[in-house]
């Protein structure tokens, strides 16, 4: 009798198997092969690909670079997003217009915006360097020097995705009850203290959610690097996703790319779980007067 319910679950289960489980299991199988342009197909290479990646310093550097890039950009996006959300949370002039304006970067296609930003950063033809020169700062080697190129990728990522953080945090702010803010004012808390003691702690759970969503997305940074710097100069802006793309799609080392992908998946799952636990401990559970 009760088994009949599984018949109704079957269509969903089939879709789940087709779109998630099959690619995952197939990738695991591929990672134990040495499938490349010379030896195409599913042979049995044992753990050779995993042994190879253990010694692949370019992979680990890309992973470190990605961690630095994603954590710093998400943190800055959170701070800016929160500031913008606070700005248009209360009744101010042109509030509706500003809310829409702040969302514009998110609505544009990432690749298109990266192309535009590459033009802006262009060292001889772009508009940015002349502006900096006019301000007395001087032209900067935006895309040809490692630290500048890394900063350029950060700027584009922050510009592109701060609106998403803004949107989540504004929705959170608008869902907060107004009464505790009224009580805080009567209880002697000025605007800054109200933010620190009421707004920020009450936004804890929403902040954790927003940061995690962005961290998951940021751990897959690819388009910006591909269009803006192609990982360069050298490998100065190469992220894991882009490195896996190079190994898999350019060098056609399918087996190795699968091993890189799976290792990356496990590392990210563990790292994001730890980050989530730390954030919950820090921002949700520890509220004090």
């Amino acid at each position: 009798m009760y088994r009949q319910k599984y018949i109704f679950l079957l269509p969903g289960l089939l879709v789940l198997v087709a779109v998630i489980l099959f690619p995952l299991i197939f990738t695991i199988r591929v990672s134990f092969s040495s499938w490349d342009v010379y030896n195409p197909g599913l042979n049995n290479a044992g753990g050779a690909m995993y042994a190879r990646l253990w010694d692949d310093s370019r992979y680990w550097e890309a992973l470190w670079r990605l961690s630095l890039l994603s954590l710093s950009t998400v943190l800055i996006q959170y701070v800016l997003g929160f500031a913008l959300a606070l700005l248009v949370w209360r009744d101010i002039a042109a509030r509706r217009f500003l809310r829409v304006l702040f969302l514009v970067p998110m609505m544009t296609t990432p690749v298109v915006m990266s192309v535009i930003w590459r033009t802006i950063f262009h060292e001889s033809l772009g508009p940015l360097n002349p502006i900096l020169e006019a301000l007395g700062i001087g032209a900067q080697p935006w895309l040809s020097q490692a630290t500048h190129a890394f900063a350029a990728v950060m700027i584009v990522e922050i510009w592109q995705w701060t609106p998403f953080m803004f949107l989540l945090l504004l929705a959170g702010l608008l869902s907060l009850p107004s009464e505790p803010f009224l009580a805080a004012r009567v209880d002697g808390a000025g605007p800054v203290r109200t933010f620190l003691s009421v707004t920020f702690p009450m936004m804890g759970a929403i902040s954790v959610g927003a940061i995690l969503i962005r961290a998951i997305e940021a751990s897959k940074i690819m388009e910006t690097v591909y269009v803006l710097t192609s990982g360069g100069p050298g490998t100065a802006t190469e992220t894991v996703s882009y490195y896996i793309y190079i190994r898999g799609m350019r060098d056609f080392q399918i087996g190795y790319a699968a091993a890189l992908s799976l290792t990356y998946l496990v590392i990210m799952a563990v790292a994001l779980t730890l980050i989530a636990k730390a954030l919950i401990r820090l921002m949700v559970r520890e509220a004090r007067a």
Partner: peptide, 9 residues
């Protein structure tokens, strides 16, 4: 008249 307290504390 509403029971106003700080829900996070």
């Amino acid at each position: 008249q509403q029971f106003i307290n700080y829900p996070h504390l």
